[in-house]
């Protein structure tokens, strides 16, 4: 039984691992920290897995546990203090894929996102993942109105950082 559960969990996580990588990408800025957070989210997901019921999509359920771990449960490891620009190393945006201005703009955008606080990052993450306000309010545990107001503020904040 336990083996079956393990197998089913690991298989689903392997398939959907990009969701966790995306959370890690927002909340960390070097490879060690990324791996560390990935590890912690995996543990939290595994612990919660027996309570996971098929009525929600595995991926939807991952958003919640992933964000909760990043915002609340995770204790930053000492290793994450020494930062190196992760986006530049790990997620190198290839120059030939974009024209120069777009690439430059994206670099600035990711940099701006990294300057946001934990909650703002969570909102941006849910926005980028195309979640509607109902889902956002349910994930964060705030009212829909509050989610809307906060989201608008974050978007404005990002625009201000980009166009000072």
């Amino acid at each position: 039984m336990n083996k079956e559960l393990e197998h089913s969990f690991v298989e689903q996580l392997e398939k959907n691992q990009n969701i966790v990588h995306k959370v890690c990408r927002l909340y960390t800025n070097n490879r060690d920290a990324h791996n560390d957070l990935f590890q912690e989210i995996t543990i939290q997901l595994w612990r919660a897995f027996p309570k996971f019921r098929g009525d929600a999509k595995f991926s939807t359920w991952m958003y919640r546990v992933g964000l909760n771990t990043a915002i609340t449960l995770y204790r930053k490891s000492k290793r994450s203090i020494n930062t190196q620009d992760f986006d530049a190393v790990q997620f190198k945006i290839k120059a030939d894929e974009y024209d120069d201005t777009e690439e430059e703009q994206l670099k600035l955008l990711y940099k701006a996102v990294h300057q946001l606080n934990d909650i703002e990052k969570a909102l941006v993450f849910l926005y980028l993942e195309d979640k509607n306000y109902k889902e956002i309010s349910e994930t964060m545990g705030i009212s829909e109105v509050n989610a809307r107001v906060k989201m608008n503020r974050v978007k404005n904040k990002l625009r201000t950082i980009l166009n000072p």
């Binding site: 392997e14 691992q17 590890q39 543990i43 204790r75 997620f91």
Partner: peptide
């Protein structure tokens, strides 16, 4: 949204499996 395969590390089944055996360090 670009699901670029090179963008994120791709962990194998075994790598993920070894992670669930490790201890949490949550607050």
């Amino acid at each position: 949204k670009k699901e670029d395969t090179k963008r994120y590390p791709k962990l194998s089944y075994n790598q993920i499996y070894s992670m669930i055996l490790k201890k949490s360090s949550s607050i």
